[in-house]
């Protein structure tokens, strides 16, 4: 395990222990500087990542904020049929302020449908959704406008909340920076790479500071670094008290979520 791997493992441990994102970044940077200057094996200098993370938590504590907070999203008994095929049966999910929920399951098990029902974009055949506060929704794709610049997207979305142009642009760029993307470009959305367009998509959904954020596989086309940035950003939003629902089929980041809803049908072929 080289320095970078140790640092990455250490970072994951800090996140898991709910150390505030910015504090964690400083600690990781300081450890990296130390290793660069002094050399040496991180396992000897700092010890195992878990142990060092535990020592850090003991020194600086974990992220403040009430947790779990009040319920922000409550979906009960969601059932959806397309023709004779039942896509969702009696799905239930509760997410509180300051929580990240993951919706997982095999392809075609209705993850996106469930999210769209939560967002109020389609109606279920049965069930109810209660949302407290403002909703933000990031579709899997197609949420951007090909012939507009990133800035114009921010202005358009911001105006919905009565935001003036300047603040909307600044808020958009700041949110993009958190994802490691400099949005001050003069490139039309259609010329952005898949991963960057997805960052634009994501930035649009967080711009209006929603209380409940629904994300449908938001990391399509992301490289490793962007992927880490995304989860940092989600942790930051969670620590600010947002309720976040992420549809995902990647299981390795589940250790960074608070609740999991598995939509894989319990019994195959048991449809009525």
């Amino acid at each position: 395990m080289n320095d970078d791997e140790w640092l990455r493992a250490f970072g994951a441990e800090l996140h898991q222990r709910r150390v505030a994102v910015d504090a964690a970044r400083h600690v990781i940077a300081e450890a990296a500087t130390h290793l660069r200057e002094g050399g040496g094996d991180p396992w000897l200098v700092f010890g195992p990542p878990q142990a060092y993370a535990a020592a850090i938590v003991e020194s600086i504590g974990t992220a403040p904020g009430p947790r779990p907070g009040p319920v922000r999203l409550h979906a009960t008994g969601i059932t959806k049929r397309y023709g004779r095929r039942t896509v969702l049966r009696d799905a239930t999910l509760t997410v509180r302020a300051g929580q990240i929920a993951a919706v997982i399951g095999a392809n075609g098990c209705g993850k996106s449908t469930f999210l769209r029902i939560c967002a109020g974009l389609i109606s279920p055949d049965a069930g109810e959704v209660t949302v407290a506060g403002r909703l933000g929704y990031c579709p899997q794709q197609g949420g951007t406008i090909d012939f507009l610049l990133p800035d114009e997207h921010f202005v358009l979305v911001g105006a919905g909340q009565g935001m003036a142009r300047g603040p909307a642009r600044r808020a958009g760029r700041a949110a993009a920076r958190q994802l490691g993307w400099d949005a001050e470009s003069t490139v039309l959305a259609r010329h952005l790479s898949g991963g960057t367009r997805q960052k634009l998509n994501l930035t649009m959904s967080t711009l209006a500071a929603p209380d409940v954020l629904l994300l449908d596989e938001p990391y399509q086309g992301f490289d490793q670094g962007s992927y880490v940035n995304l989860w940092d950003q989600l942790a930051r939003l969670r620590d600010e008290g947002r309720a976040i629902v992420v549809v995902t089929h990647l299981l390795n980041q589940l250790d960074r979520v608070d609740t999991v809803l598995d939509l894989t049908p319990a019994q195959q072929g048991g449809r009525r």
Partner: peptide
Amino acid sequence: IQGGTLYPV
């Protein structure tokens, strides 16, 4: 003194 001891302090 190793970093693992020093930085928490």
